[in-house]
Simulated scan of single mutants.
Amino acid sequence: MILSELRSLINQLNQELAYTEQEASNGLVRVRELLSQFPNNAQMIQFFAYFSTVLAFVENSKRRIQVFLQGLATDDASAEEIQEAGEDLSTLLGQAIETKIEVRRIMTRLQS
């Protein structure tokens, strides 16, 4: 994997994470409103926990991206290290997309 492809992958990953972070934050606001009206609603408590976990996932993913970038910033990064970083980032992108889809699904339920 060449560095330009890696940069493109990182940009896409950052976009997915930013969207997911915004939606999860919005979800937390909505769930808090509903919990104030229905404090013992198990489903809302579960959504609150999920959105909180999503925000932790986003922060952790951002840190992982920074670690990859720092590791690749050195001129002595081998082709194997670049390939491995690309594979790890691709896996992370898949996780981010799955998380985004689930956040959207829950947000749709909350809006109806």
Score class of each variant (00 low, 15 high):
residue 11 N to K: 13
residue 9 L to K: 14
residue 11 N to F: 07
residue 11 N to H: 08
residue 29 V to C: 02
residue 10 I to Y: 04
residue 23 E to L: 14
residue 35 L to D: 07
residue 32 R to Q: 13
residue 27 G to Q: 09
residue 30 R to Y: 00
residue 24 A to S: 15
residue 29 V to A: 11
residue 29 V to L: 06
residue 24 A to F: 01
residue 32 R to G: 11
residue 19 Y to K: 09
residue 36 S to N: 14
residue 32 R to K: 15
residue 9 L to Q: 15
residue 33 E to L: 07
residue 19 Y to Q: 11
residue 9 L to G: 05
residue 20 T to Q: 05
residue 30 R to I: 04
residue 34 L to C: 03
residue 18 A to E: 13
residue 32 R to V: 06
residue 28 L to M: 14
residue 7 R to E: 15
residue 8 S to K: 15
residue 8 S to Q: 15
residue 9 L to C: 09
residue 9 L to R: 10
residue 32 R to H: 10
residue 33 E to F: 05
residue 10 I to N: 06
residue 24 A to V: 00
residue 17 L to V: 03
residue 23 E to W: 02
residue 15 Q to T: 09
residue 16 E to W: 03
residue 27 G to E: 08
residue 15 Q to M: 09
residue 18 A to V: 00
residue 24 A to T: 01
residue 27 G to H: 09
residue 32 R to D: 14
residue 12 Q to R: 13
residue 36 S to H: 09
residue 11 N to M: 06
residue 35 L to H: 08
residue 26 N to F: 07
residue 13 L to I: 11
residue 20 T to F: 04
residue 13 L to G: 05
residue 21 E to N: 14
residue 11 N to E: 15
residue 17 L to Q: 04
residue 12 Q to W: 03
residue 12 Q to P: 01
residue 22 Q to K: 13
residue 9 L to T: 06
residue 21 E to K: 13
residue 19 Y to V: 11
residue 21 E to A: 14
residue 23 E to Q: 13
residue 17 L to Y: 07
residue 26 N to H: 12
residue 21 E to R: 14
residue 33 E to T: 11
residue 20 T to W: 05
residue 30 R to P: 00
residue 31 V to Q: 07
residue 30 R to C: 00
residue 23 E to M: 12
residue 15 Q to N: 09
